[in-house]
């Protein structure tokens, strides 16, 4: 995969998780800025997914294609699902859902990198 794109996703997701965690500590519900932030992270995840798909078509997929695609799909839905679940809860616990969703993203990206490099 393209390292720059991967790292952009990882850094953005971690920064977002840290930002949301501060809001949890300060007892803040998930407000609009956190929705916008989630949108930014999701946009990067989308770009990364497109890049990965283009690379798979051009250079061939990693050996464990099914697992890789599974991680790719899960990465795409985790932020929207987290947002959906978070926004109905008007307390710090809603914001804490965003922290969890954002922390899953880097884990998935790292696993995807491992699978990608194993096939290279």
């Amino acid at each position: 995969m393209v390292a720059v794109v991967d790292w952009a996703v990882i850094v953005a997701a971690l920064a977002y998780a840290a930002w949301a965690l501060v809001a949890v500590v300060r007892n803040r519900p998930p407000r609009e800025p956190y929705v916008v932030g989630a949108g930014v992270v999701e946009l990067l995840v989308l770009i990364q997914a497109v890049v990965a798909v283009v690379l798979m078509i051009a250079d061939g997929a990693p050996e464990e294609t099914a697992t890789f695609v599974g991680y790719l799909l899960m990465n795409l839905i985790i932020i929207p699902l987290g947002l959906f679940w978070a926004l109905a809860e008007k307390s710090r616990w809603g914001t804490s859902v965003l922290v969890v969703a954002a922390l899953v993203v880097p884990l998935l990206v790292v696993r995807m990198q491992q699978l990608w490099d194993a096939g290279a």
Binding site: E64, A66, T67, G70, Y71, L73, M74, I77, I78, L81, G82, W85, A86, E89, S91, W93, G94, S96, V97, V100, A101, V104
Partner: peptide
């Protein structure tokens, strides 16, 4: 489903998703 339960269910959902995906891939391939 509210308060800490919101977070708990979110973590459960992550495991439901990843365990299903993992099992699906393992069994299929």
């Amino acid at each position: 489903a509210s308060g800490p339960g919101r977070l708990l269910i979110a973590v459960y959902a992550v495991f439901a998703l990843s365990a299903s995906a993992r099992a699906g891939v393992q069994i299929a391939t």
